[in-house]
Nucleic acid binder design. Structure first.
Lengths: 201, 201
DNA sequence: CTTTTGTAGTTAGCCTCCTAACCATCCTCC
DNA sequence: GGAGGATGGTTAGGAGGCTAACTACAAAAG
């Protein structure tokens, strides 16, 4: 992700200092906000580097995980489906589940298909639609990579006790639910737009 | 950031279910991990959308903030520096502070310079180096945009009490410090590499 | 004083994300 | 049953990340 975040978070005193100049700056909110993004960034880049070692990006890995359903796989195995081990999904469903646009999903599926991890098949009933299916290669890949992936998550969260994890989840859920309700007004964007009051022109 | 993250986090029972199949899956660690990334993603995209309304990306905004030092500005004002209101920084310093590569910083500075928010000046003592300076336009822009930016942070963190914020910061700090110590082994990456044991070839 | 090593910045090429526009197909409704 | 709208998927073009390779310069080592 590296999303251009301050590597060294400002000390709390500096935030207090800033609050003097900017009355809108709430030091504790700002501190929590920065820590949230900074920590998430570090954790995310750790996972991304780990996945990169196995030659896959986080985005593509996410698509594979969405398509992968081990429980479903066992059921299908009984049917001897062979090459269709997990339930097929359409690009639109995948895009919605992953929270990216359909155009982005098209690109991801393109590269996954090029690498032989995924297959596109036209839908027999609706000719607009496609089904995206995992290949056996992808199945083997996921089985091979998952344990290390889970171990890394465990290792990252190791310093927190069970109750601390519960607390963290509870607090994050509060923030997430609140954030989901905040809708940024959709105004027309412009390049480094200046409001009339502050515009030099 | 939208980093292709599951929009609907799996329920805890599903994680328990998955743990049966994958002994390496620690349900509470996985839950905390996913909530951390999911929440951060939501919060981040909120901020990014807000900045987009003002025609600037998070990355460019971060560079401007790094170059901006209101306290320094006040000092310089006494010197009547005029067009050099904040301490100059080199691209390398900016890249380190922002946690991106120098190549990325070059690109960001390019676009900022194109938009007239930043200026490059050669260093008089070391001819390899450049100084990056905020323009007056950028100063006005930051003064105009900052209050809304701070308000948004406050609003995002509103559902947490002061003590909850402290707790959140404490838990996140634990995770961050731990994550910083985890070094992913640097092996040669490959495209969707399969280990010999699971390779079909 | 020359050579080697290291550092600052850029360039080139790739990947993933976005929006906007575009077809093709389905569905609804007159 | 044909027109208009909704939906699924792709394409085109842009931005911000990355690595790797390159240039220019500075500094250390011989």
């Amino acid at each position: 992700m590296p999303l251009l975040l301050l590597k060294d978070l400002p000390r709390y005193e500096c935030l207090l200092e800033g609050a003097k100049e900017f009355p809108d700056l709430d030091p504790s909110a700002c501190e929590a906000f920065l820590h949230l993004l900074r920590t998430s960034d570090e954790v995310f880049s750790l996972v991304e580097k780990d996945l990169a070692v196995h030659g896959i990006s986080h985005g593509r890995f996410g698509v594979l995980m969405l398509l992968w359903n081990p429980a479903q796989r066992r059921i299908d195995a009984a049917h001897a489906d062979g090459d269709c081990p997990s339930g097929p999904r359409t690009p639109a469903e995948l895009a919605d589940a992953a929270g990216v646009t359909r155009a982005t999903m098209t690109g991801l599926i393109d590269t996954l298909e090029r690498d032989g991890l995924v297959r596109r098949e036209p839908d027999p009933t609706d000719r607009r639609m496609m089904s995206v299916l995992l290949t056996e290669k992808a199945e083997r890949f996921l089985v091979g990579i998952s344990p290390a992936h889970f171990k890394l998550m465990t290792r990252i969260m190791a310093p927190l006790s069970e109750s601390e994890r519960k607390t963290l989840v509870r607090l994050l859920t509060k923030v997430l639910e609140n954030a989901s309700e905040i809708a940024v007004p959709a105004t027309e964007p412009a390049r480094a737009r200046l409001s009339p009051a502050e515009s030099p022109y």
